[in-house]
Amino acid sequence: MNIYVCIKQVPATETKIKINASGTGIDTTGIKWIMSPYDEFAVEEALRVREKNAGSTVTVVSAGPQRATETIRTALAMGCDNAIWVETPEETDSFQAAKALAAVIKKEAQPDLIFTGKQAIDDDCAQVSQLLATFLEIPYVTVALNAEYGAGTVTVKREVEGGTTEIIAMPTPCLIAAQKGMNEPRFASLPNIMKAKKKEIKQYKMADLGVTDADRKIKLVNMTLPAGKQAGKKITGDAKAQAQELARLLHTEAKVI
């Protein structure tokens, strides 16, 4: 089986975000970069499927600036066989990323399965998985809690609201976007980290893939940090007085109950 896993490099969750001068992106100085956490579940799932299906290969693909190759190495160290990097400028949108990924997959081996994360935690778009599957004209399931793999079909449990789940069967090739908890992502072992350093990363440029500026459908502008909240009101008194005052404030001042 040819298994692809798409990963995105994002700032670590604890990063203090600063906006760049033009308000169209963040100031990247000093940021620690990581693999988007949901993508770790995607990588793990790809590796598990490979381990159950002798002769399968897992190819990791990431689009991003040069530093994205570090995250590709992390995926290789976890156990991916092949790696592809699409070089992009700092600011691209979901449409461009998905179009580039689709073009890469069309040029490379025919996919059986594609794994992604449900959402990249930088722009929080949750779009690339669906765009990619639609460009490739294959079915997809997002927010996947688990999947069972049969011959030529996959049955996926998808999380929706209120603890409700949908059970969806689809034929391969198909795309599965992982939700947290789909599995327990493995840590890379030291020997694998060493081996990953030597592996080749195949490179594409956006232009090689027919992706242009006209494919950028969305621009984020006027980025701001949320207005600092003024200090809230501390309600004093005994518990009874506090409860009474809070109910009054919520009702008459904030008008939310």
Partner: peptide
């Protein structure tokens, strides 16, 4: 307007095309 970076920042959206 949409939150990005888990709500640590906000951005306006411009549609192209």
């Amino acid at each position: 307007t949409r939150p990005i970076y888990a709500g640590k920042a906000l951005a306006d959206v411009e549609f192209a095309g």
